[in-house]
Amino acid sequence: MSEQSIAVEARDLGRRYGTVWAVRECSFQLPANRIIALVGANGAGKSTLMSTIAGTLAVTCGSLLVHGRPVVKGRSTDAGGSAGSRVAILAQDKPLYRDFSVSDMLRFGRSMNRVWDQRRALSWLQRFDIPLDRRCGKLSGGQRAQVALAVALGSRPAVLLLDEPLANLDPVARTEVTGELMAEAADSDMTIMLSTHIIAELSGVGDHLLLLDAGRPVLTGDVEELLDSHVRLTGPRADQPPGPGAIVQAQHTDRQSTFVLRQPAAPVAHAVVAPGWSTQPITLDELILTYLKASSKAHRDLETAA
């Protein structure tokens, strides 16, 4: 990827709370103008990683670049960055000033940012029928989330970080929000990173995946490419799979073996590689669960060995 096309780059990033590492050995490159799904179990380090990218949390080690500019904690884009490296973050609890009206919140966004797109913020609120004169403290959880999203979108960031953005929304609103977010990303030069621990929320949303487990990235890449490069092989019991590729997961019963393989190059079609064996494509949910289980098993093995 060229530097222009990289939105976020982490180099051996680590963040420790006391003696506990929330994020460690994180090295990845995330492409620009895409929707990046940051997935991990509770406590995997998703919020910590997002906060370090936003510059509100200092890193313990390593470095972070947003559109080629180093992220320094506490330094705003106003002071040292360009408009192209502006980052907005929306926290899990969607904080708003409770005694502000919705239009006050828009004015807050306009007052606190060098760049402000009132039309974009207003049209977002209109789409979800949010009354502008109501105090934020009187809004429902879902409405508060929409106001917070409107403020974040109105600042026209280059990178928008959304921590569990769908948590307060009903299923219909989730679908609407994800659809609108995808449209916003497509219409602008914005990179959206959204975190979730609910894999079902991701279907059809993210086009790039960053999977975290215990603070470490265990899988990153374009979703389509990842799905194409992984295959499940099922056949008679065997110690090794009958085809090329790295074993991500191996499961055995008395008579049958199942392997999930990461193949060196995406095959055009998943051909049957040996008699008695069948290949199946893998879904995103299965891919994520497979890697999380594999990572968890690797940790257990390491602890046992230690």
Partner: peptide, 8 residues
């Protein structure tokens, strides 16, 4: 976090 993650 809201206040400090703006351009100020």
């Amino acid at each position: 976090l809201l206040a400090w993650s703006q351009d100020f």
